[in-house]
C-alpha cells in the first residue's frame, strides 16, 4: 500500500502545480485556459529532450523546461488577449489539440506516439522505492515553494492589478495599467509553473508521450481548482487532493462491484467520478476555501 500511496501523492504534487499555474492564469487574472496541458507537455518534452540529447543534469533540464514554457506562455498571450472568455475557452482547447497533433507527428523530435522512453532520473543517491520517497519529498517541496511564491504574488500589487483585470480590463486600462504587459507576465509565470510540473512528471515516469494530453486530466485540474476555491492558492492544492481522492477512491470501489463485465465496470467508474464532481460543484459552488477578499463593511449599514 505504501508505494502505491507514494506514487499517488507524487502525481498529486505534480497535478497541484497544474492547479496552481491555472489558478494564477484563470483564478486570479481571469484568463481561462483549457490548453494547460499544452504547456505541461512542453515543459516535459523540453526537459526530457535536453537531458537526453545534451546530457545536462536533470535539475538544470527541469529549470530549462520551465523557462522555455514560460517564454512560450508569454508568446501565446499575444494571440489570446483580445478574445473574450468563451472564445478563449474554445481556442485554448484547440491549442492543446494542435500541440498534441505536433507531438504525435513530429517524429524526428518527439519520437511520435511511441513517446520518449528512458528519460534520465535525477541522481539522488538512492534507488528503488527509496528513490520514489525522496522524489516525492522533492515534489512536495517544490509545491510548497511555488505555493508560497504564488501567495506573495497574489498579495503583492501585481496580484491586485490582476484581480482588477479579471473584474474589468477596460477599467484597469483606463486606470493607466498596461493590460497586455500584465497579461504577458501572468502567462509567463503561469507557464513556468505548468512547465515545471511537466518536467517533474517526465523525469518521474522516465517516459513522456502524446498521452499526456488526456482530456480527463484537464477536467480534473479545473475541477480541483473550482472545488478548492477559485482564486485561492491553498484551495488549488486542497482541491487537487480531493479530486485525486475521488478519482482513485473509485478504483477501490470497482473491486466491490460484481456481476458486471469489464467495460461496464470501467464505465461505471467514470460515471461515478463525473457525478461526484457535479454534486460537489453544486453543493460547494464557491469551493471549500473561497477566495480571500478584503470586505469593507459600511459602518452606516450596520444597525
Amino acid at each position: 500500500m505504501i508505494s502505491y500511496l507514494v506514487a499517488l501523492l507524487t502525481f498529486g504534487a505534480i497535478y497541484a502545480l497544474l492547479a496552481l499555474g491555472l489558478n494564477l492564469m484563470w483564478g486570479i487574472a481571469g484568463m481561462v485556459n483549457l490548453g494547460i496541458l499544452g504547456y505541461y507537455a512542453l515543459g516535459g518534452y523540453s526537459s526530457a529532450l535536453l537531458t537526453m540529447h545534451l546530457g545536462i543534469p536533470v535539475w538544470l533540464g527541469v529549470i530549462a523546461g520551465a523557462l522555455i514554457t514560460a517564454l512560450f506562455g508569454a508568446a501565446t498571450c499575444i494571440g489570446l488577449v483580445k478574445l473574450r472568455d468563451d472564445y478563449l475557452a474554445i481556442v485554448t482547447l484547440g491549442f492543446a489539440e494542435v500541440m498534441r497533433n505536433i507531438a504525435e507527428n513530429f517524429v524526428s523530435l518527439t519520437n511520435g506516439t511511441d513517446g520518449l522512453a528512458q528519460i534520465p532520473r535525477p541522481r539522488l543517491g538512492v534507488t528503488g522505492s527509496d528513490f520514489n520517497v525522496v522524489y516525492l519529498v522533492i515534489c512536495v517541496m517544490v509545491v510548497l515553494v511555488v505555493l508560497a511564491a504564488m501567495e506573495r504574488l497574489r498579495a503583492a500589487p501585481f496580484g491586485r492589478v490582476l484581480r482588477a483585470l479579471r473584474a474589468d480590463p477596460m477599467v484597469a486600462a483606463s486606470a493607466g495599467k498596461n493590460v497586455l504587459g500584465f497579461q504577458v507576465r501572468t502567462l509567463a509565470v503561469g507557464g513556468f509553473v505548468l512547465g515545471l510540473g511537466g518536467a517533474l512528471y517526465a523525469h518521474y515516469l522516465t517516459y513522456i508521450s502524446p498521452e499526456v494530453f488526456q482530456p480527463q486530466l484537464m477536467i480534473y485540474v479545473f475541477l480541483a481548482l473550482i472545488l478548492g476555491g477559485r482564486g485561492n492558492n491553498y484551495g488549488a492544492v486542497l482541491g487537487t487532493v480531493l479530486v485525486l481522492a475521488i478519482v482513485e477512491g473509485t478504483r477501490f470501489l470497482a473491486d466491490l462491484v460484481h456481476g458486471l463485465d469489464a467495460v461496464q465496470i470501467g464505465a461505471l467508474r467514470a460515471f461515478v467520478i463525473g457525478v461526484a464532481f457535479i454534486v460537489v460543484l453544486q453543493k460547494r459552488p464557491h469551493g471549500l476555501l473561497p477566495e480571500p477578499r478584503r470586505i469593507y463593511t459600511d459602518p452606516a449599514a450596520r444597525s
Partner: peptide, 10 residues
C-alpha cells in the same frame, strides 16, 4: 484507460 498516469497508479 490507455493512459500512462492511470497505468502507473494501476
Amino acid at each position: 484507460q490507455t493512459n500512462p498516469d492511470a497505468a502507473v497508479l494501476g
